[in-house]
Design a protein around this nucleic acid. Structure first.
Length: 460
RNA sequence: GGCUGGGUAGCAAAGCGGUUAUGCAGGGGCCUGCAAAGCCUUUUAGACCGGUUCGACUCCGGUCCCAGCCUCCA
């Protein structure tokens, strides 16, 4: 039984899809004007783990993650670059897809772009307008009348009067109420625009997700996710828009992924304390990054530091080391304890407890290491189990031997030559020479390991 | 000020009202020519103060501290 923590009531609750075996899940994706940073990576990876688990348990999962390709920041960045907005957004969509691939993230089922759904947004704003929930200001912008949606604040646990007390004054606005937000922005000269009943303009950010989720999934669907910073106002506004326009419940389960922090502060573009995925991939492989991101629970804050990623790398290497050199095609179930998979799935069923799931993998690794000296077949069966469960969460995707060797500048044949030299030194008991060769290779980042089957090497 | 979360051993990070989390690091041992890897073993916890309980890191109350949201942000 799958349990998910729902931000709507701040409780872990039993997950039951609206239609049996069908799950609709929508996640707010990126605004594509720059490279993705580690915070984006965490959302991509966590929802990848989540949807992989959903797809194993429900036959028909529709995972939609949008792309925001029209927005103030995109327009100003394109202007800075003296570039067409589509050339800018296409470029960064490609970059994002490359990052996803590095992190082992599977593509969503549908990845709609905002600019392809402008008509759906206009429809929705019209319907809000008919219901008295939207109005056009004198400057031409169309706003949502927050006071007219009585349940406003139910997701974030805020009430309008508390919000008023802390509201920042928006001097140049035509809003009737400072908390009202923009649905449609009147076009300025030289800005991309679309025709609408309110004049040429472009959609506000919040309406994009309401329109796309309603269109690509349904007016009422199972799971909506995103980073924790989207809870308010973005997701609150989505509820106001969708429930206001459709007069039915919008989303059953709201899921929010915690921040990636640096020195216990949120990583963000405005604080300029962010690391892009590209930055980090210069020093670490994608799977190490993925391991790092899933090594804490998705709702907890995750502190970014090199020490912590090093830690993830060591842990992942332990798993690869366990499966190294074993025949992972042994599928004799009688040789393995089926509790491993049960416990693993139970961990994921408990609000996607990835740290718990990982600990099961280490239990298997330990068993493998114990068995490999006396029962190679059993060790092989266990390693196939370990790889299978690892693959469930998108790790252990590589050949262990290759994984342990990757990232060295030396060629295989150079290393093999050195190993042969050392072997002849060893057989003539010239241990000084033997150790010297091993030390030389160590300086170059290569670790040699002697065993009864001969000498193998791996990257430091 | 309002609303969310959270404070676990040297570091990271979970579960659990009583029994080893897990990974890294440290100690001792085995293995090894010596290492590495691995195995065995071991040290280091639960912010603070009360309460409930036979028993609390785990439940309840209070105090202190931290982060996030209340503006665009994943």
């Amino acid at each position: 039984m799958l349990k998910i923590y729902n931000t709507l009531n701040n409780q872990k609750e039993k997950f039951e899809p609206i239609n049996p075996n069908e799950v609709g899940i929508y996640v707010c994706g990126m605004t594509v004007y720059d490279f993705c940073h580690m915070g984006h990576a965490r959302v991509m990876v966590m929802f990848d783990v989540i949807t992989r688990h959903l797809k194993r348990n429900f036959s028909n999962v529709n995972y939609v993650r949008n792309i925001t390709d029209i927005d103030d920041k995109i327009i100003s960045r394109a202007l800075e670059n003296n570039e067409d907005i589509y050339s800018l957004t296409n470029r960064f969509i490609d970059e994002m897809h490359q990052d996803e691939k590095s992190l082992g993230v599977l593509s969503p089922d549908i990845e709609p772009r905002a600019t392809d759904s402008i008509d759906k947004m206009i429809e929705m704003i019209s319907s809000l307008s008919k219901k008295g929930l939207a109005y056009q200001g004198e400057n031409g912008d169309v706003f949502y009348a927050v006071r007219n949606f009585k349940e406003y604040g139910k997701l974030s646990g805020k009430n309008l009067d508390d919000l008023m007390a802390g509201a920042r004054v928006d001097i140049e606005s035509d809003k009737k109420d400072p908390l009202d937000f923009v649905l449609w922005k009147k076009a300025k000269t030289d800005e991309p625009s679309w025709p609408s009943p309110w004049g040429d303009g472009r959609p506000g950010w919040h309406i994009e997700c309401s329109a796309m989720s309603n269109h690509f999934i349904s007016n009422h669907f199972d799971i909506h996710g995103g980073g924790m910073d989207l809870t308010f106002p973005h997701h609150e506004n989505e509820i106001a828009q969708s429930e206001g326009a459709n007069s039915c419940k919008f989303v059953n389960t709201w899921m929010h992924v915690g921040f990636v922090n640096i020195d216990d502060e949120k990583m963000s573009k405005s604080l300029k304390n962010f690391f892009t995925i590209r930055d980090v991939l210069k020093n670490y492989d994608g799977e190490t990054l993925r391991y790092f991101l899933i090594s804490s629970h998705y709702r907890s804050p995750l502190n970014y530091s090199e020490a912590n990623i090093d830690n993830a790398q060591s842990a992942l290497k332990r798993l690869y080391n366990a499966i190294k050199g074993l025949d992972k095609n042994v599928e004799d179930k009688s040789l393995i304890n089926t509790d491993f998979e049960k416990k693993f799935n139970a961990a994921l069923n408990d609000d996607f407890n990835t740290p718990m799931a990982l600990s099961i993998l280490f239990e298997i690794a330990k068993q493998i290491n114990i068995e490999r000296t006396n029962n190679l077949k059993k060790a092989g069966a266990l390693s196939s189990e370990l790889v299978k469960l690892g693959n469930y969460i998108g790790i252990l995707e590589y050949n262990a031997d290759e994984y342990m060797k990757q990232g060295t500048e030396l060629t295989e044949s150079d290393i093999t030559k050195k190993i042969k030299q050392r072997e002849s030194a060893r057989s003539s008991k010239d241990f000084a020479m033997s150790d010297q060769i091993r030390d030389e290779l160590f300086e170059l980042g290569i670790i040699l390991e002697d065993s009864v089957n001969g000498t193998t090497w791996r990257r430091k």
